[in-house]
Amino acid sequence: MLRHRLAGLLAGALLISVAGALPAHAESERTSYINGWILHKESNRWYDSNSDSAWTGVYFEGCSTDADFSYAGLHLYKDVSWNPDVFKGSRTNYCGWVDWNDPDDAGQYYFALKSLANGEALWVNQVRIGW
C-alpha cells in the first residue's frame, strides 16, 4: 500500500514539474499574406483579450518589393474608438519574426507598414500574427 502511495506521489510531482516547464501558448494566431502594400497600409484588426502573458508578434516569409527587399518597418497600434490609436512600438522586420512583448492591455490591435527599404510596394507570401 505504501509503495502505491509513493508511486502516485512521485507521478504527480513529475506531472506538475513537466507541466510547469512547458512554454505558455499564445492566445491565438492568424495567417495571411501581403499583396502590394504601400506605406501606411494597415493590417486587419485582431482582438487580444490579454488572458495570458504571450507576446504579440508578426512573422514574414517570402518577402519582396518592386526593387530589392531589405526590410520593412512596422508599427503596432491598439485601436481606440473615437480617440487616437495607442502606439505600442516599432520593429524592423528583415523577413522573419518580430515581437512587441506582451501589450498588457486587452483590445483590438493592428500593425501598419511605416517604412520600406528598397521599393515602394511590399509583397509577403506568408504573414503569421500571434498574440
Rank of each mutant, 00 (worst) to 15 (best):
1 M>I: 04
1 M>Y: 03
1 M>S: 09
1 M>N: 11
1 M>V: 07
2 L>N: 05
2 L>C: 12
3 R>C: 07
4 H>L: 11
4 H>S: 13
8 G>E: 06
9 L>G: 04
11 A>M: 03
11 A>D: 07
12 G>V: 02
13 A>F: 08
13 A>H: 01
13 A>M: 07
14 L>N: 09
15 L>F: 10
15 L>E: 04
16 I>G: 06
16 I>Y: 11
17 S>G: 04
17 S>F: 05
20 G>T: 01
20 G>N: 10
21 A>L: 15
22 L>T: 13
24 A>H: 05
28 S>M: 12
29 E>Y: 12
29 E>C: 05
30 R>I: 03
30 R>A: 00
30 R>F: 01
32 S>N: 06
32 S>I: 00
33 Y>G: 05
34 I>H: 09
35 N>I: 10
37 W>V: 02
39 L>S: 08
39 L>R: 14
39 L>P: 00
40 H>F: 05
40 H>A: 08
42 E>R: 14
42 E>M: 09
42 E>V: 02
42 E>A: 12
47 Y>V: 06
47 Y>F: 13
48 D>W: 11
49 S>E: 12
51 S>H: 14
51 S>T: 14
51 S>C: 13
51 S>K: 15
52 D>S: 15
52 D>F: 02
53 S>L: 13
53 S>R: 15
53 S>Y: 13
54 A>C: 15
55 W>L: 05
57 G>W: 10
58 V>I: 14
59 Y>D: 13
60 F>H: 14
61 E>S: 06
61 E>Y: 01
61 E>P: 00
61 E>M: 00
62 G>H: 10
62 G>S: 08
63 C>G: 14
64 S>R: 14
64 S>V: 00
66 D>E: 04
67 A>R: 12
67 A>K: 11
69 F>S: 12
70 S>R: 15
71 Y>R: 12
72 A>I: 07
73 G>R: 11
73 G>K: 04
73 G>F: 02
75 H>K: 03
76 L>M: 12
77 Y>G: 03
77 Y>Q: 00
78 K>Q: 15
78 K>G: 10
78 K>Y: 08
80 V>M: 10
82 W>I: 05
84 P>Q: 02
86 V>G: 00
87 F>A: 03
90 S>Y: 08
91 R>T: 11
91 R>C: 11
91 R>F: 01
93 N>R: 09
93 N>Q: 09
95 C>E: 11
95 C>V: 05
96 G>F: 05
96 G>R: 09
97 W>V: 05
98 V>M: 04
98 V>N: 04
99 D>V: 05
101 N>K: 10
101 N>L: 08
103 P>G: 01
104 D>C: 00
105 D>C: 09
106 A>H: 04
107 G>L: 07
107 G>M: 13
107 G>I: 03
108 Q>A: 13
112 A>K: 15
112 A>W: 01
113 L>V: 06
113 L>G: 04
114 K>H: 03
114 K>E: 00
114 K>W: 01
116 L>M: 02
116 L>K: 02
116 L>Q: 03
118 N>E: 14
118 N>F: 09
119 G>S: 11
120 E>K: 06
120 E>T: 08
120 E>D: 04
125 N>F: 00
126 Q>E: 09
128 R>E: 02
129 I>E: 15
129 I>Y: 12
129 I>V: 15
130 G>I: 03
130 G>Q: 02
131 W>H: 03
